[in-house]
Write a protein that binds this DNA or RNA. Structure first.
Lengths: 224, 224
DNA sequence: ACTTTATTTTAGTTATGCCTAAAAATAAGA
DNA sequence: TCTTATTTTTAGGCATAACTAAAATAAAGT
């Protein structure tokens, strides 16, 4: 009779898996990147990576970086699903604003069961994307494909149908909202300044200016 | 400059405070009672009680039992408020049944912020009691007074307006529900068997029999 | 190639919060 | 009261997951 001990997944492990996914999707992440992302010291990360490998959540050779195994990615996406459904609930039904949502979801995602998650999914009407426009992984761990062209890459005169805003910073999000820049809106590139990369844009008939950095965060689909 | 270290309240501490409150409200609880309630060994409880005393959550002299301080009770009631609001949400909006609710709420109550709790309270319409009929502590830590006479103590012919069912056991709750015994219903004591304490009751015009133990769990107000 | 710098790992601590086994205090029964 | 039984505490461990300091490895610069 083999041991076959399936250890429970701690919230620490969940956070590591999510961090690896965020930092390196399917590529490979460095110890330092993870330490930064998790706000934890590099030695702590290093030692945890050993444990994650032992439990087959990651491929990891010392000094050579980490990447998620299939098992690890499954868990990361399961957590991401919980996170984004919870965010959707907080924003749409409890009156949270951008600034408050993240921290709360970060705690709750570790506490809810699969049952809760699926009931919440039903309650919310099975959304495919959260209010940021980020895709919500399905129960089977598939990510709905999402138009992802950065606004910054358009040519003069082109228009982007906004799908998502790739930031979780409160100030960024509320600033964009104050300009009416939100998922499903259409944004046209009017002019690009020759130095500094500022872009002039038109939305809802009004014109404003965006920095290059901001323009990189706005993603969506180029339309005719 | 004094240290003045206000340590964060761990989920373990929250569970102990809740357990002490449940076991001994304002009276004093024994180490063993708590070990039973928390499903933790007595030595573990003993050592934790020392820590709780150091942080002024409890009054505790070795061998002489524990009771909550004002500070401890405030925390216990804050947790209880979260618990009961969460249960209400799960039962009324996510389609949970009696059996599933407890476990989920037990985890979530440690994860939600005060902000979440108050937004949820608003979402739910500021309920004073949860669907069990248990009173929900207010933000200020007051417990709404609740009619609390056990059905078992009525005299023949008297009727109880049910306010709460003092059990968190799935089977008990669903059994009572199958007999239409729920908060706000009226239950009349028809007859008491001379041996064994079985009671014959009438509810919604139908008659059934309840054990003495069950009759103790049904609480409410005697009406004319 | 070699030296400096940066990254990563090892070694050794710490704090929580649980456990079992054994000792001490209290409570109960003859 | 004195002995037995129960309850509670002390003693000593273990697992998780963080930390700092120092050593090892890898990367970059000249």
């Amino acid at each position: 009779m083999p041991k076959n001990k399936t250890k429970p997944i701690s919230t620490a492990i969940e956070d590591y898996l999510k961090a690896i996914w965020l930092v390196a999707q399917d590529a490979s992440a460095s110890t330092n990147d993870l330490a930064l992302q998790l706000k934890i010291s590099a030695p702590s990360v290093s030692s945890m990576l050993g444990k994650l490998r032992e439990q087959n959540f990651v491929h990891y050779e010392p000094y050579r970086g980490v990447r998620l195994t299939e098992k690890g990615e499954r868990e990361a996406l399961r957590l991401l699903r919980r996170h984004r459904l919870i965010e959707t609930f907080l924003l749409e039904h409890l009156g949270y604003d951008w600034g408050e949502v993240h921290e709360e979801a970060e705690k709750l995602e570790h506490a809810v069961s699969d049952t809760f998650t699926e009931r919440l999914d039903t309650f919310l009407g099975h959304p495919s994307h959260d209010p940021h426009g980020d895709p919500i992984p399905t129960l089977k761990g598939k990510l709905p494909v999402t138009p992802n062209t950065p606004f910054a890459e358009l040519s003069i005169g082109e228009t982007l149908k906004i799908a998502r805003l790739m930031s979780q910073d409160k100030d960024v999000l509320t600033y964009l909202k104050s300009l009416a820049i939100e998922p499903s809106k259409e944004l046209q590139l009017v002019k690009r300044e020759p130095v500094g990369g500022l872009v002039h844009v038109e939305i809802d008939g009004a014109e404003t200016v965006l920095s290059k950095e901001l323009a990189m965060l706005i993603r969506g689909e180029v339309i005719v």
